[in-house]
Structure formats: structure tokens, C-alpha cells
Amino acid sequence: MGKMHHILLKIGPAAFRIASAWRQPLDQLAGLYRHYPAPGEGQVDFTVRLEPDKPWRRHIRPSVHIGGDFWLPDAAPLPLAQGLLAAEMGMNLQMALGWRRHLLLHASSVKKDGKALVMTGLSGSGKSTLSAMLAERGWRFMGDEFALLGLDDGKISPFPRLISLKNQAIGAMQNLAADDRFGPEMKATPKGDIRHLVPPQEAVTRMEESATPALLLFPRFGHARELREMGQAEIFVRLTQASTNYVALGESGFRALTRFVDRVPARAMDYQSIEQAEELIDGLWSKLP
């Protein structure tokens, strides 16, 4: 068998072992996650494996197959230059398919005044960019990919992995954040141009602190500024679609999600710029009970 290297990472409540046939993606991860704590005793929840697609692909046009404890058939391999993206996708896959200690919402989340703002929507809605931007403007970053909804307490737990910036968001954030917080720029990946950003330090040191959700937004970038009320049935259905493990959690997922829909006010938000979004959010936030 080919030799494997590995590192251990802890992000919010989850611990990972990332094993790789190549050092390069692990060195990049180790650098970007250098301020994160290590999982105790070497014990983790999930193993991610980055392996050559075919044995000869370790050295010749190396191509990375994403595997691990949980995996999908037909996952397309990535070139080694995108190994860091492969590792992040591998961790997301473990969470999406294997995590059961929270209801997982495909959503970003930020926190202010001890309460959480949750933003969910399709890819391209701008939820990830919004969370990154708000995190530089007085909000505490909690996560750009998954919001973890507590099954018993209804609180949101942070999952502050590296922020995955796409396309135009890369340039926008480069104007705001210091150079040493960025990973390598990866051009023309299956998800477009990608560059990872280390979350603000406080997001990492306080990643064990959960917060009560106070507002749920369905942002949509590029449409004329508008806030729209939504029916509970629409909210519920869209959240089941945004959850990777709603079905897998059975009754406890049903209870957590119905409580969330009951208690958390929600709006659809169309916006055309970050300033507009910030203004709309501040307006809603100031009127919360």
C-alpha cells in the first residue's frame, strides 16, 4: 500500500483525521488551521482520505480522489493543485453524511448581542460571502457552510472551518483581510475560482459557544432590494431541503426543525450590494424582541 500522511483537526464540535497520499494539502491545512486546537488523544469523529485516483496517479498528473469514512460513489477527482479544496470537500462530506449530534443546515451564521443570525439559500445566494463580510463588520463569524442546530436546546453551534470564497468574493475580501489569512488561489475548480480565508481569531477561540437563533434569512444576491415575509410551510420545506441530515435524524430532526420554524422569525431578502444587505439586516436586527 502507498504511504499515507495525516493531520488531525478540530472544528467546532467535530474532530477530523485528514489522511493524504501527498504532503502538500496537509501542509496547507496545517498552516491555515494553525490557531485551531488539536483533538485530544488522537481520537476523531471522521477520517477523510485523499488518495490517487489510480495507483500511477500518485506521481503522474496526480489526481486526488476524495474518500473517507463516509463517501459518495462517482465523486470526481481533483488535480493535486486543488488538494486543499479536496480536503475541505471531504470534511463537508463527512459532516453532511455522518453528523448526527445536530440538525445540519446548509447555512452560514454570524452572532451579535449573544444571538445568532442564520442565512440559508442556494449556491450563489451570497450567504457565504455575507457571513465573511459581516464578520469584518462587528459580527462574530460562526460558519459559512453549515449551521449546527441543537437537537435538545435549539441553539446554533459554530462550525468555523475555513471560509470558502468564490469568484468575485475573493477580490472583495482581499481588500478587507490581511494577506496571511488567505490560502492559495485555486483557478477554475469545479466550483469556480476558490480561495480559502482563515476566520477571525475570535471565531476560533470561541468556537465552543453556542447561541440562540434570533433571525433566519433567505438572501438572494442580484435582485432589487426587498424584504419579503414567508409562510411557515414554505420555510419548513426550504429548510428540509437545506438540511443534509433531516431525514437521517428521524423524530429528533422533526422536533428540532419544527421548534426552529416556530420560534425564529424569517424573511426572504433580495439585495444588490453588501451595504444594502447590511442596512436591511441592521433594520431587522434592531426590531427583534
Binding site: 409562510g231 411557515q232 410551510a233 419548513f236 431525514v247 423524530e251 422533526f254 419544527t258 420554524v261
Partner: peptide
């Protein structure tokens, strides 16, 4: 059966099937 009101609709969680 677990029932939950959603505006004008009703949610029904069916335990045996999940």
C-alpha cells in the same frame, strides 16, 4: 403520529416510516 401546525397546513411525522 406527531402533528404540528404550519399556518394553514399541518405537518405529520409518521413514526414507523420516519
Amino acid at each position: 403520529l406527531i402533528w404540528h401546525d404550519l399556518d394553514s397546513m399541518k405537518l405529520l411525522y409518521h413514526r414507523p416510516s420516519g
